[in-house]
């Protein structure tokens, strides 16, 4: 390749290099962002050491169905982001209910005018929850699952 031809090719190639490097950079940023979103979702679902779970079985928003929320010893549940458990479903109240552990019992307490059904029966204020109970917050149905201790779990298996 003569010097002139090389010069022409090299002058063209510099745009090609910029294009490739820019593409690589943007792809890294894009993929990184995607992975971050996945990571965040994974963290929401499984990171903290929970004592019980709420699994959404029915909701107005079909994307919510199947999601598992981990519960700590004391939780506020509602649509608002301020709640410990935020279920962004239309039928939920902003602050819908409180769910907490008192001794060995789990207690569901709903707030004011919000409606809560436990296993199909309307709750009047405070309800004792058992493992595998179905809880309905207005139109959002969730299953309440108490986490088994590790040794119990292996015994059963």
């Amino acid at each position: 390749m003569s010097a002139q031809v090389f010069e022409a090719v090299s002058l063209m190639a510099r745009y090609w290099f910029v294009l490739l490097i820019a593409y690589i950079l943007l792809r890294i940023v894009q993929n990184s962002l995607d992975e971050y979103k996945i990571d965040r979702r994974m963290r929401l679902e499984g990171e903290r050491s929970y004592v019980a779970y709420l699994k959404v079985v029915d909701a107005d928003d079909p994307e919510l169905i199947g999601l598992v929320y981990g519960l700590n010893e004391f939780n506020t549940i509602g649509k608002s982001i301020e709640c410990d458990i935020t279920i962004p479903d239309k039928s939920m109240r902003k602050k819908h209910a409180k769910l907490y552990k008192k001794g060995p019992d789990w207690i569901l307490e709903h707030r004011g005018s919000s409606i809560v059904f436990v296993n199909g029966e309307e709750s009047n204020g405070v309800t004792l929850l058992n493992d595998n109970d179905n809880v309905a917050f207005s139109g959002t149905m969730a299953k309440f699952i108490i986490r088994r201790q590790r040794n119990e779990h292996t015994k059963k298996a």
């Binding site: 994974m42 499984g46 779970y53 699952i145």
Partner: peptide, 9 residues
């Protein structure tokens, strides 16, 4: 952790 959650749920 996720596997544990899955096994419980």
């Amino acid at each position: 952790k996720l596997a544990e959650v899955e096994s419980h749920v």
